[in-house]
Simulated scan of single mutants.
Amino acid sequence: MSGVQDQLEIKFRLSDGSDIGPKSFPAAASVTYLKEIIISQWPKEKENGPRTVKDVKLISAGRILENNRTVGECRSPLCDIPGGVTTMHVVVQPPPLEKEKKVINDPKQNKCVCVIL
């Protein structure tokens, strides 16, 4: 393969329809690396941006990309056009808020009331 074919032009489509990129990435770049780029270049004016790689899901050709895969492994031969730009959709899933831990045998939590007549 030539050096040009080892590079992919990728743009990242955010949920509001705006894009990050397009940028050129080597086919050997990991999905984790792409997510780190998205986090570092997330628009400052947008709320609820991702904080960690675990907060980001990348979708390409209808598939959620796995962190341990490379861009080259995730390519879809049906969707990729030589010299074209690949669009990957970005879904941000912030971590769930920690809920209060409840003690199972806490008498204050018991809502049962027994009435003897």
Rank of each mutant, 00 (worst) to 15 (best):
N68S: 10
A28Y: 12
K99Y: 06
K54I: 07
Y33D: 11
L14T: 01
I38P: 03
I39E: 02
D6I: 06
Q41M: 03
L8E: 11
D106P: 01
K44V: 04
K108L: 15
S40M: 09
I38V: 15
S2N: 15
T52N: 00
V71D: 00
R51K: 10
I39C: 01
V113C: 12
P50W: 00
E73P: 04
I10N: 06
K46C: 08
L117V: 07
E100C: 00
K35M: 03
A28I: 12
Q5M: 09
W42N: 00
V92N: 06
L65K: 07
P77S: 07
G21M: 08
M1R: 13
I59K: 13
P22E: 00
I64G: 02
V113T: 12
P95H: 01
G72P: 05
V115P: 03
N68Y: 10
L34A: 01
L8K: 12
V113L: 14
I20N: 05
R69E: 09
S30G: 10
G21T: 02
T52C: 06
G72W: 13
R75I: 15
P43N: 04
P82G: 02
T70E: 00
I64W: 07
K11C: 15
T52G: 06
E100M: 07
I10P: 04
D6H: 13
Q109R: 08
P22I: 02
D19F: 14
V53M: 06
W42E: 04
K108G: 10
K23M: 11
M88W: 14
E100W: 00
V113N: 09
T87F: 09
S18F: 02
K102L: 12
N105F: 04
K23W: 09
E98Q: 14
R69F: 02
I39F: 02
N48L: 10
C74F: 11
I38L: 13
I38F: 03
K101V: 09
K102F: 13
S60I: 08
D106L: 05
N110W: 09
S40P: 03
L8F: 12
I38N: 01
R69N: 13
P95W: 04
E73V: 09
R63F: 10
G49A: 03
Q93D: 15
G21S: 04
G72T: 00
R75G: 11
F25T: 05
H89M: 12
V53W: 02
E100N: 05
V71H: 01
P96H: 02
A29C: 09
